[in-house]
Design a protein around this nucleic acid. Structure first.
Lengths: 335, 335
DNA sequence: CTGTTAGCGCGTTCAC
DNA sequence: GTGAACGCGCTAACAG
């Protein structure tokens, strides 16, 4: 027994008004008798009238939905970014519809096509690790749909981009190690082709330089895979004659692996070797010792990206912004 | 320079056909000349025609979007469930629009209203911890919108529910402790008002009973809060004269706290005390020793719930299902 | 097999 | 200030 939706037509009939008058009363337009407006609003309330978004979309040619494509929702970072997006979207009467690319450029393109076909008003995207082709996104723009990149952006395309300053976060981490007394600081780095990994490495190098510490290539070890080859790199590091007394790892999992290994070798953390990670994973709090790490403003990234997107949607301004947000160092007992 | 969308009207004009013929050609209806169908399809392809979902929704009175409300997306469990939902929805041509309740019944109700107002075809919901009022959901049903509960369901409402067998998971965990030799097994339990916590406790009790082990009330400690009062419970436990040699914790974080404390006291895990957690958090893999835990089939829960929902949407069948999925014990070095 | 007509719910002219 | 008429893009009913 589904009680069907009441429409403006119903309101009009009961009030002996025309639908257009009711339509006007329901919105913020002038040219309407305040008295009749009050009546309409009252009846709408009473009958529990709800405007039909679908019909409205059809005539206004805007759906009030923003499409989001990100690599994987199970990553804490993206989940938080999405929360920021929902907050910002909600504040302006927009809805979010999101999809995962699973780090596959093909899936990414497919998902975007689907979103476009349901007439999203704008697109937020964090590209997959191996996305390089810009065409998909250009096509979306050519349709008049604004695109904003967040976190991971493409170089060769003009668009608003909201990212996080990886260099700065790494710099802070290493500076902290130096200031607390570490003199020989190693870096377990990420893949050489990943820009965020490179940025973090450069932050590490620049911090060393600033404090006149030597940059020792033996102290920089790249993991091609974040998980499985990290351990051998760590082993290699502690086979060196001149062992480090500080480690900056490209992420928390690797930092934790380091700590585990250091303990096995009988080193004390942080007394003998201090360790800093990156990401502020939930894990970093519960390990022993709790990990000093760098927290990225993922929620804010999502929120800001969405606000900028909505600006573009609504004023059709084609000025693109480049926003780079700062990270925060979370100091815990591992340093 | 936005190239505006091509419509069936455009196709009709170019082909000198009527819009309805084109409309029919584009869909899977009979009563259409295969020849003209081919022509239409060819032109549609060439002009890159895409059906307008909005217009279609307006006349069909169905949007092909499923609303999802869950407590918090940053929890791994729910992120996985959502992935399962997207897979199932995608397979049937539906889209997912999701919201978070942040464990607040008020927000929950608001989000649901919003979703209903944009005319979702069905609703998937995992209620907040303190939701008890059934009215919100009844109203949705009365509108003719099917509701399916997943993971956390309400008792006092008739609807399809897809949940996980907490009792069984706990039973497996405790049985495993017993079989590996633990004779005095304690349980750090969750809040007494939370049904999943109660279920897990009962699983614990029933496993003890099955193996003729005494159920000792001193060995059952309830944490009202999952985080902050866990530590004192653990302390209390090891102030007992008769200390346990096995611990079943209601979740992984608490299990990890246990391990940390046991180590401080000089106990060896698992030799002196074996520990099992619950959830298979990413954390559980990286701690030392890696934690034995119970993995819930969250992805499958989401997928199945969605499939059942779509069935209800499409055949308007009002037979409600109750599905209870099994969990899996992941054995690692903490036992 | 195809075209005509009508209408989904709403917003937007234009007269009045 | 208000109403009638039209259209958004598409589907459904009925003729033919």
């Amino acid at each position: 027994m589904l009680n069907k939706q009441v429409t403006i037509k119903d309101l009009a009939r009961k009030l002996r008004l025309s639908v257009s008058t009711v339509s006007r009363a329901l919105r913020d337009v002038q040219d309407i008798n305040p008295e009749t407006k009050k009546q309409v609003l009252a009846l709408a309330q009473e009958l529990n009238y709800e405007p039909n978004f679908i019909a409205r979309s059809l005539v206004n040619k805007q759906t009030k939905v923003i499409g989001v494509v990100l690599p994987v929702i199970a990553a804490r970072y993206f989940a938080n970014a999405l929360s920021g997006m929902m907050e910002a979207a909600d504040a302006k009467g927009y809805h979010i519809m999101f999809c995962q690319s699973d780090e596959s450029p093909e899936k990414e393109a497919i998902r975007i096509k689907k979103l476009v076909s349901i007439r999203i008003d704008g697109l937020l995207v964090s590209v997959s690790k191996s996305t390089s082709d810009v065409e998909t996104f250009r096509k979306v723009q050519q349709r008049g749909i604004p695109v904003v990149f967040f976190d991971r952006a493409l170089e060769d395309i003009e668009a608003t981009k909201v990212t996080v300053n990886q260099h700065e976060g790494a710099f802070l981490a290493v500076e902290h190690l130096i200031q607390r007394g570490s003199t020989k600081i190693a870096h377990i780095a990420g893949p050489k082709h990943l820009s965020i990994a490179i940025d973090r490495m450069n932050g590490y190098i620049d911090a060393l330089k600033k404090y006149n510490l030597p940059v020792n290539n033996e102290y920089i070890l790249h993991c091609e895979d974040f998980q499985f080859d990290a351990m051998e790199k760590i082993h290699a590091l502690f086979n060196l004659d001149d062992k480090p007394n500080g480690i900056f790892a490209v992420n928390d999992s690797i930092a934790i692996l380091c700590i585990k290994y250091l303990k096995e070798l009988g080193y004390r953390v942080p007394e003998d070797v201090a360790v800093v990670g990156y990401n502020n994973d939930p894990v970093s709090e519960v390990v022993y010792p709790p990990l000093t790490t760098v927290m990225q403003p993922s929620f804010e990234v999502g929120k800001l990206a969405t606000q900028l997107l909505i600006d573009e949607i609504e004023q059709k301004s084609s000025t693109f912004h480049q926003k780079v947000l700062s990270s925060e160092l979370i100091v815990r007992s591992s340093t």
